[in-house]
Each structure stands twice: as structure tokens, then as C-alpha cells.
């Protein structure tokens, strides 16, 4: 295995980008060695890439269940632990408990969604990373990890599909 390098090229058009990525696949560049960065969300698979499985729904459901149990504990459990005895027993009523359980379920679901998406994205992450500031100005960046021997071929492919700023990628502070 030879030494690998990171090569980045910028594109104006999504079609050119997708075509260039197809050519890279034909060169047997594995999908996980290609990273596309855009300033706009393109539809899934528009750039010829696979759809990624996510744990988000599971995280959200676990959060919701936690909130539900917390709500049950507060609305039903704590009146038993700290009883305000009325008629010989603590006050535990259905409709108010339903309100509390609902709100706590929702609160935990919201917080778990937020924390879940940050965790899935690996945020916050401030270390230096491969990036180009023109991405947020409308350019599509294709980052390829390849062998040194493949650099010229990849350069040619990118150029043939109207790529520009094709050069070794630089890590920058984000």
C-alpha cells in the first residue's frame, strides 16, 4: 500500500459533481474515501452516494421513554413518597398525571433529539479539518483520499467535469 493523499476539487454544478464521483467509482475509489461538502442540502443520492443509516429514531424513542418514566415518577411516584394524605391516602389523580407525563415525555424527546443529532454528527468538533470556505458560497467540494499514484488521474477526471481549485486538501480551523 502506497502513501495516501487528500485531494480536493470544487465544482459549480451538482450534475458535474455527480458525474465526477461516478468516474471516481469506476477508478475503484471506495465510497468511504470520498466526501462531498455542499452549502445547500441536496436530495439523498443526488450526488450518487448511498443513504446512511441513522440511530436518530432509536435515540428519540429512548428519550421519549425516559421522559415518560420520569413523568410517571413525578406524577405518581412522588405523591406516594411525600404523601399529602386526604381521605386516608395520597392524592394521585389521572388527568393531572396525564398532563405531567405528557409534558415530561415531550421535554425528554426534544432534548434527546437535539443531543442525538449532535452526537450523530460528532459535534461540537473544533479541531482542524479538511474544508474549503467556498463551500458556503455555492461550490460543491469533493474530497478524495487516494494513493499518490492516482492523483493525476483524479485530477484529470475532476478537470474534465469542470472542477476547479483542484489541489491537495488543507486542514483548517473550524
Amino acid at each position: 500500500m502506497g502513501k495516501t493523499v487528500m485531494l480536493m476539487g470544487l465544482f459549480h454544478e451538482s450534475t458535474d459533481t455527480a458525474d465526477a464521483i461516478d468516474r471516481l467509482y469506476e477508478m475503484k475509489i471506495p465510497e468511504e474515501d470520498i466526501l462531498v461538502m455542499t452549502g445547500v442540502p441536496y436530495p439523498e443520492q443526488a450526488l450518487g452516494r448511498h443513504s446512511e443509516w441513522q440511530r436518530m429514531p432509536v435515540i428519540v424513542l429512548v428519550g421519549a421513554l425516559t421522559g415518560f418514566l420520569l413523568g410517571v415518577f413525578l406524577a405518581v411516584g412522588t405523591p406516594t413518597l411525600y404523601p399529602l394524605t386526604v381521605g386516608g391516602r395520597p392524592i394521585i389523580t389521572g388527568p393531572p398525571a396525564a398532563v405531567i407525563i405528557f409534558v415530561f415525555t415531550m421535554m425528554a424527546t426534544i432534548v434527546s433529539t437535539f443531543l442525538g443529532v449532535l452526537w450523530e454528527m460528532g459535534f461540537p468538533s473544533f479541531e482542524n479539518k479538511y474544508y474549503h470556505r467556498l463551500v458556503t458560497s455555492g461550490h460543491l467540494a469533493v474530497l478524495v483520499e487516494c494513493l499518490e499514484s492516482q492523483v493525476d488521474d483524479i485530477h484529470t477526471i475532476m478537470e474534465a467535469h469542470n472542477g476547479h481549485h483542484i489541489q491537495s486538501a488543507e486542514r483548517m480551523a473550524l
Binding site: 462531498v36 455542499t38 442540502p41 443513504s51 436518530m56 460528532g122 459535534f123 479539518k129 473550524l174
Partner: peptide, 13 residues
């Protein structure tokens, strides 16, 4: 938070 606009980031967002 270190956003780069990768496909995975957009999809998850």
C-alpha cells in the same frame, strides 16, 4: 460547532 456541510451532516440535520 464544526459544520462542514457534508452529506451526512445535511441528512441528519
Amino acid at each position: 460547532l464544526g459544520w462542514r456541510g457534508t452529506e451526512a451532516e445535511w441528512h441528519k440535520l
